[in-house]
Simulated scan of single mutants.
Amino acid sequence: MIYTVTLNPSIDYVVKLDDLKKGDINRTVEEYVYPGGKGINVSLILKELGYESCALGFVSGFTGVYIQSILSEKNLKSDFINLENGFTRINVKVKSKEETEINGQGPHICEEKLNMLYEKIDKLNSDDILVLAGSIPSTLDERLYENIMARIQNKNIKVIVDATKKLLLNVLKYKPFLIKPNNNELEEMFNVKLESIDDVVFYGNKLKEMGAQNVLVSMGKDGALLITKDNQILRSNVGRGIVKNSVGAGDSMVAGFIGGYLKNHKYEEALSLGAASGSATAFSYDLATNDFIKIIKSEIKIETLN
C-alpha cells in the first residue's frame, strides 16, 4: 500500500477576478473549492492513475469533515486523525493579473495525537511506500520527518520526501528512496545560482552523495532531471500546453513517478509518467485527469545524459 502524509491539509478556495482592487469590493468571475495539501494531491493523482493509496494526517472541524467527505466521494481511502481544536485551514488563492495567496494556519497538534500518527506509521512494512510531503506546522518539531524515518529505517520501506531546505537535507542520512526538489529549492539549499543543466546535475549528485537514493529535480518549462540509484542521469521535456495552475504540479509529478516505477520498475517509465502528470496538472485548473495525462505522456521524451 502507498501511504501519503499531509500534516496540515487545507480547503483551497480558488477565485478568478478580472482585476483585484485593494480596499474595494471584488466580484469573482469563477470560483472553485478543492481539498488541498501535498500528500492529498499525491493520493488523488495516484487514484487517477489506477493506484490505491491511503491518506494520513490530521483534520479538524467542519472543514476537516468536508475534506474527508470529498475523498470518500472519490473512493480514496483515508485514515486521518481528528483533532478537537480549531478547524482544518482554508487557503484563499486569488487568480487575477497576478496570483495572490492567503494561507491559513491550521489547528494545534498535541503530542498525544502526534503519537497516534507514529503508531499508524509503525505498522508499515517492506511492501509499503510512504510519501512525506509538504511543510511541517509551526506547532510541531521541525525534525518530525527525521523522527518518522528513524522509526522505520530498518523496515526497508521506500520513503519519498517532497520538502524544502532543512526538512529535506536532514532526512538524507536515512537514505530516502526518492527526493523531489525543484530547481529553485536546489538553489536555496546550496545557496547557489543554477546556470545550466550541468549545475543541476552537480548539485543533484551532491544530494545523492548525502544519502538520497534517487533525486528528481523539477525544472518548470525546462522539464525534469532524474539521477537514479544506479547513477543514470535522465532528462525529460514537458508536454505542450498553456500553464493554468502551478499548484499541485510537483505533487502530480511525485505521484506519476510512483505509478511509473510500480508499473515495471524502470526509471525511464517513472520519469516519463512523472513528467506527464506534472505537466498535465500545470495545464489544468484542477489536478489532471488520467485521460489528459495519457495525452501529455505521448509527447514526453526521455534523454540519457550519461
Score class of each variant (00 low, 15 high):
residue 234 L to R: 03
residue 304 T to H: 15
residue 289 T to C: 08
residue 89 R to Q: 03
residue 42 V to N: 10
residue 7 L to K: 08
residue 236 S to G: 01
residue 236 S to W: 06
residue 201 V to A: 09
residue 152 I to Y: 14
residue 10 S to L: 01
residue 161 V to M: 05
residue 140 L to Q: 06
residue 14 V to R: 12
residue 257 F to T: 15
residue 133 A to D: 05
residue 299 E to I: 11
residue 305 L to S: 03
residue 133 A to T: 10
residue 252 S to M: 04
residue 164 T to V: 13
residue 249 A to Y: 01
residue 216 L to A: 10
residue 49 L to S: 10
residue 281 T to F: 14
residue 93 K to Q: 06
residue 171 V to G: 01
residue 58 F to N: 11
residue 7 L to F: 01
residue 247 V to K: 09
residue 194 L to I: 05
residue 64 G to C: 02
residue 232 Q to F: 11
residue 282 A to V: 10
residue 26 N to Q: 02
residue 244 K to C: 08
residue 7 L to W: 02
residue 180 K to S: 06
residue 244 K to A: 05
residue 237 N to H: 08
residue 151 R to C: 03
residue 60 S to F: 03
residue 198 D to T: 07
residue 172 L to H: 11
residue 106 G to D: 14
residue 132 L to N: 04
residue 112 E to P: 00
residue 94 V to C: 01
residue 210 M to R: 13
residue 82 N to A: 07
residue 29 V to D: 12
residue 273 L to S: 07
residue 171 V to K: 02
residue 214 N to D: 13
residue 33 V to W: 15
residue 212 A to D: 05
residue 69 S to R: 09
residue 194 L to Q: 05
residue 255 A to T: 02
residue 155 K to N: 13
residue 179 I to H: 01
residue 285 Y to F: 12
residue 40 I to P: 14
residue 211 G to Q: 09
residue 195 E to G: 09
residue 253 M to S: 12
residue 302 I to D: 01
residue 93 K to W: 10
residue 43 S to M: 04
residue 54 C to N: 11
residue 201 V to H: 10
residue 9 P to G: 07
residue 134 G to Q: 07
residue 134 G to S: 06
residue 119 E to W: 00
residue 22 K to N: 00
residue 301 K to W: 00
residue 284 S to H: 05
residue 240 R to A: 08
residue 264 N to A: 11
residue 187 E to S: 09
residue 206 K to S: 13
residue 1 M to G: 12
residue 61 G to A: 07
residue 203 Y to N: 10
residue 71 L to Y: 14
residue 213 Q to I: 01
residue 46 L to H: 10
residue 71 L to H: 15
residue 89 R to M: 03
residue 56 L to R: 00
residue 266 K to N: 15
residue 56 L to S: 05
residue 224 A to S: 15
residue 3 Y to N: 06
residue 211 G to M: 15
residue 86 G to S: 09
residue 238 V to D: 08
residue 40 I to V: 08
residue 200 V to N: 04
residue 257 F to Q: 05
residue 273 L to P: 12
residue 55 A to V: 08
residue 8 N to T: 10
residue 51 Y to K: 12
residue 111 E to Y: 04
residue 55 A to N: 11
residue 151 R to M: 09
residue 94 V to R: 01
residue 299 E to P: 03
residue 204 G to I: 07
residue 168 L to Q: 08
residue 204 G to E: 03
residue 34 Y to H: 11
residue 274 G to I: 10
residue 210 M to L: 15
residue 209 E to D: 15
residue 102 I to A: 04
residue 94 V to F: 00
residue 146 E to M: 13
residue 171 V to M: 02
residue 186 L to T: 09
residue 89 R to G: 06
residue 205 N to H: 12
residue 26 N to R: 03
residue 304 T to F: 14
residue 213 Q to K: 15
residue 170 N to M: 04
residue 217 V to L: 11
residue 286 D to V: 13
residue 258 I to P: 14
residue 223 G to N: 07
residue 48 E to R: 00
